[in-house]
Amino acid sequence: MAEITYKDAAHVCEDGETVLDALLRANADIPYSCKKGTCLSCMVQMTEGDVPQDAQKNIRPSLAQQGYFLACMCRPSGPLTIAQADDAVIYGRAIVTGIDKMTPDVCRVWLRPSTPLYYRAGQFVNIRRDDGIVRSYSLASVPRLDRELEIHVKRMPRGEMSNWFFDQVTPGDGLDLQGPNGDCFYVPGTPDQNLLLIGTGTGLAPLLGVVRDALDAGHTGNIHLYHGSREATGIYLADEVRALADTHDNFHFAPCVSGSAAAGPFRAGRADEAAFADHPDLKGWSVFICGYPAMVNAARKTAFMAGATLPNIHADPFDFRDLRHEARDEVEDKPDLW
């Protein structure tokens, strides 16, 4: 048991309990989302005491030195005094410069941050609306190639942020931006390594960033991208991606449709199954998997068993929950991805 003080109020953190769970139990006001150390929404600052190393694992060194840590990953061993994170340290401002509704359910949005964001293609940012709602989006843009940040937004049933992007946002609107986060990005230095990329839904966004980054860096190994959706309407940007494949001999693109009968240019079946059927031996490969969490977790294991080492498997499950204190109602018709 440890005593924690948050915003001048004292709380008790039970043995084995995280700071976040203790604060939520006490109805304290603290933002959070993934509860597993990925999204960084629950970052707070320690002003007195000690935090375990695990709680600072995914935090930039400059912030860690100032005592920033993740409440969801912190099981304190002694008393802790915690302050709300300094908002200006975490969020910057950005404006929407364009919106392209590519399909009825997927749009891409371009953003220009007020101060330059140093990121790698495939990382993700947290976007906060002026009423405080936060969501995570992966970056499809490549710093060397694109002036603006590009995200892909999938319209979610009753999704606060996604419907807002679709129905209300216009160029010139402002929002808050935090990032970059995550380690799903291309690592230069092994140009002849083969790359396998598997994504469902808007899991295409970070993968496309990784592919363009790798091609621009002069990657010579084979790059295989499998994009999956239940319906053919979920395959977006296929013409652009194909054009990229047409101009690069080492880049191969396979759009896959798993639901109704696959038509025309699409492979029938799931993207992960097609990828592993085509490439049963992944020894020495680098693998990127993004999208629906169940697919990501299963594909991760399959890639590992096929010979890829875990440090060479970069996975980004899109499993960020709602930031409100009460979980979003289970959506009955589960999207196959988001």
Binding site: N297, R300, K301, F304, M305, T309, L310
Partner: peptide
């Protein structure tokens, strides 16, 4: 570590004892 973990996971007599929901933690 990866060679060992892969062998363990491919052995159906013991793989159930090794949770794969958090592979980093298992590793």
């Amino acid at each position: 570590v990866d060679i060992f973990y892969r062998k363990v996971l491919s052995d159906p007599s013991i793989s159930d004892f090794f949770d794969t929901t958090d592979m980093d933690e298992q590793r």
